[in-house]
């Protein structure tokens, strides 16, 4: 019993068939996809019947200086499995990844939090405003170079 963490290569095969070239890196328990294809891949993960990721656990991000990594943790309640998808946003000025709020409403506040504290824009988010800090705050505190 318990949730099965799907292996990165298994899911990567399925995605590679549908979206050739979308995958940047395959990890043991997750994949890294190109930000341009992220929205399509996420839709595929949600809507394909044998994956059926209907529940978005969490959206967060980490700063690795060369790029930002946005991390999505997904669960399928019917298939009882989990998976982790990452996508990378480049540049310090205006890093952007597509929003997934149209797929999972649960991403709404979490993407706003990532935008506020990490400074990553989510294109297509209906209400991308600061959430923990006030409008007019300079900088994004969770970036590693924010002191």
């Amino acid at each position: 019993m318990g949730l099965k963490a799907l292996a990165g290569p298994d899911v990567a095969n399925k995605i590679e068939k549908r979206f050739p070239g979308a995958i940047v890196e395959i990890q043991p328990a997750g994949i890294v996809v190109k930000s341009q294809s992220a929205a399509d891949v996420m839709r595929f993960l949600k809507e394909s019947p044998d994956l059926d990721f209907n529940y978005l656990n969490s959206v967060t991000a980490a700063d690795y200086f060369d790029y930002f990594e946005v991390v999505y943790h997904l669960t399928s309640m019917s298939r009882k499995h989990t998976f982790c998808v990452k996508t990378r946003a480049f540049g310090r000025e205006n890093p952007t990844v597509p929003s997934v709020t149209h797929l999972w409403q649960g991403a709404d506040l979490q993407e706003r939090e990532v935008y506020d504290l990490m400074g990553i824009r989510f294109s297509g988010h209906p209400n991308l405003k600061r959430i923990a800090l006030w409008e007019g705050f300079k900088g994004h505190p969770l970036r590693r170079d924010y002191l």
């Binding site: 656990n57 969490s58 967060t60 980490a62 943790h73 409403q105 649960g106 709404d108 506040l109």
Partner: peptide, 16 residues
């Protein structure tokens, strides 16, 4: 930790 993130249930429950 290089990054420490909390998925806070009360925060996300407020989405709806």
């Amino acid at each position: 930790p290089y990054r420490w993130h909390v998925r806070a249930p009360a925060f996300i429950n407020l989405t709806a």
